[in-house]
């Protein structure tokens, strides 16, 4: 048995696949590729396949890590070829290799965000509004959590989770590049940040695209 990390690009129609659905979809892909997965032992054996940091529905990605355990002496190259042949539309295998970092080492993610506006003047103006809001440091969002059995609404300060942020305009688009906290303990979904910006700045783009570009460790180096 050995562990393999497969990096997948996710785009197009595939971005509407939820995390749970993605698991099933990829398990089937690995089966079609005739790569024997390692099964957990015990009463209800299931194949080992997991995503260290599930991508929210509706967002695309340059490279999503998927960890599998396999029982075969296939090389990384063979796995790459076999998987590439069976991927559904919207998924592209970028690379296959040994998992260097532990799943828990993900600390941040870098996103490219595009907001479309009816014209360039509006885009330019909004880019300015966005920069002011971020610099102001007062952005908040409500998050419902659980305290024991009770549902509680917490106000969170978003700026604590923003590590880098740039916004500029280009034609009728606002282009944002941002590094946000990511991982299983603290995680800021960029969609949540955008909603806070729309609310605070009182604007709404006609169209939005969010793409996760890479995952980073706490020292800003790439998660591998």
């Amino acid at each position: 048995m050995r562990s393999v990390r497969v990096w997948l690009e996710k785009s197009g129609r595939a971005i509407y696949t939820s995390h749970l659905d993605l698991n099933r979809c990829m398990t089937r892909a690995v089966r079609r590729a005739n790569i024997p997965l390692w099964y957990t032992e015990g009463f209800n054996p299931h194949p080992y396949l997991m995503f260290p940091l599930p991508l929210p529905l509706g967002q695309s990605s340059d490279g999503e890590p998927m960890d599998i355990r396999i029982e075969t002496d296939m090389t990384d190259g063979e796995i790459f070829d076999a998987l590439s042949r069976v991927m559904p539309e919207g998924f592209t295998v970028k690379s296959v290799g040994e998992p260097k970092d532990k799943a828990g080492d993900v600390a941040m993610a870098q996103y490219g965000i595009t907001l479309e506006f009816p014209d360039s003047a509006q885009a330019e103006r909004t880019a300015g509004v966005i920069r002011t809001l971020i610099d102001g440091g007062e952005l908040t969002a409500e998050k419902t959590g659980k305290k024991g059995r009770m549902k509680v609404v917490k106000e969170i300060k978003l700026n604590d989770f923003i590590h880098r942020f740039e916004a500029g305009s280009e034609d009728c688009y606002v282009k944002i590049s941002a590094v946000l906290s990511a991982g299983s303990t603290v995680n800021l979904n960029p969609a949540l940040l955008l909603d806070a910006l729309y609310k605070a700045g009182d604007f709404e783009p006609v169209y939005t695209e969010i793409r996760r570009q890479k995952l980073l460790k706490s020292d800003f180096s790439d998660f591998e």
Binding site: R13, Y16, C25, R28, G58, P88
Partner: peptide, 10 residues
């Protein structure tokens, strides 16, 4: 469940 409306399945 937007996946109902996108197509593009294997």
């Amino acid at each position: 469940k937007p996946g109902r409306y996108t197509g593009g399945e294997l």
